[in-house]
Amino acid sequence: MSLFGVQRGSGESIWDIKRHYGVVSAQLHRDYRVSTNLLQTVLSGFFDSIGLYDAPSRHQLNIAREWLLLLGLENKEQLAFSQLSYGEQRLVLIARAVVKLPLVLILDEPCQGLDNKNREKVLALVDYIAERSNTHMLFVSHDVRDVLKCITHHLTFSKGAEGYMATATARA
């Protein structure tokens, strides 16, 4: 088995694998409780860490600031992550996941717990990322309101007589 073009078991570390993907999930949101500001939170995505423990380069700082500008949070970069609204926190965590331009972005229920306004912001951001990057996305949702223009394939799990079955469909 190979993962990101590397034969598994060839001595790669978890960090070698993690650099190829970004993740946003409700669990990550719950676990991101370190004392960091917005800029540090986005920058931590370059290092796959919860919190910022390495010194970012000038280039990384510029990229992180561009993401905060895109989110409309450029004037809050020194604000504590914990002081943002729940919806703003989720947007920042998405920026954190994509700041390094991963090959794969895994979005596990990214709209869970959000009101309609923030749900729309998250979905718009995901479509924006899909339209402007080469990142492949795995978007997991149980909510029919989570509709994205960028989705090309759906995998639906349903319970049949012999257990759960998966049905794949491509959008026309």
Score class of each variant (00 low, 15 high):
Pro56Leu: 04
Val23Gly: 02
Trp67Phe: 10
Tyr164Lys: 10
Ile151Lys: 10
Cys150Glu: 05
Ala55His: 10
Met165Leu: 12
Val98Lys: 00
Ser2Glu: 13
Arg171Met: 11
Gly72Leu: 12
Glu162Arg: 10
Leu101Asn: 15
His20Ser: 07
Leu28Ala: 15
Val122Cys: 02
Trp67Asp: 00
Gln78Glu: 13
Leu105Met: 07
Leu105Pro: 01
Phe4Asn: 11
Asp54Val: 03
Asp115Ala: 01
His20Cys: 11
Ala64Glu: 02
Asn116Phe: 10
Arg8Gln: 13
Arg171Val: 08
Leu79His: 07
Asp127Arg: 09
Tyr164Asp: 14
Leu61Met: 15
Thr41Ser: 11
Trp67Cys: 05
Leu43Ile: 09
Leu91Gln: 07
Asp127Ala: 09
Tyr164Leu: 14
Thr169Phe: 05
Glu162Cys: 12
Ile17Gln: 05
Gly45Ala: 12
Arg145Phe: 09
Lys121Met: 03
Leu148Glu: 05
Ala95Asn: 02
Val122Arg: 11
Pro102Cys: 05
Ser141His: 10
Phe47Glu: 10
Lys159Asp: 06
Arg132Ile: 01
Arg90Leu: 15
Leu71Asp: 08
Thr169Arg: 14
Phe47Thr: 06
Leu103Val: 14
Ala124Gln: 11
Gly9Met: 06
His59Pro: 01
Thr167Cys: 09
Ile94Phe: 00
Gly45Tyr: 04
Val140Gly: 01
Thr135Ser: 04
Leu103Arg: 13
Leu125Tyr: 02
Cys111Lys: 08
Val104Glu: 03
Gly22Trp: 01
Glu74Ala: 14
Ala161His: 12
Glu12Ser: 13
Gln27Gly: 04
Pro56Gln: 12
Leu71Met: 02
Ala170Tyr: 01
Gly11Glu: 06
Asp31Pro: 00
Ser85Phe: 02
Gln60Asp: 12
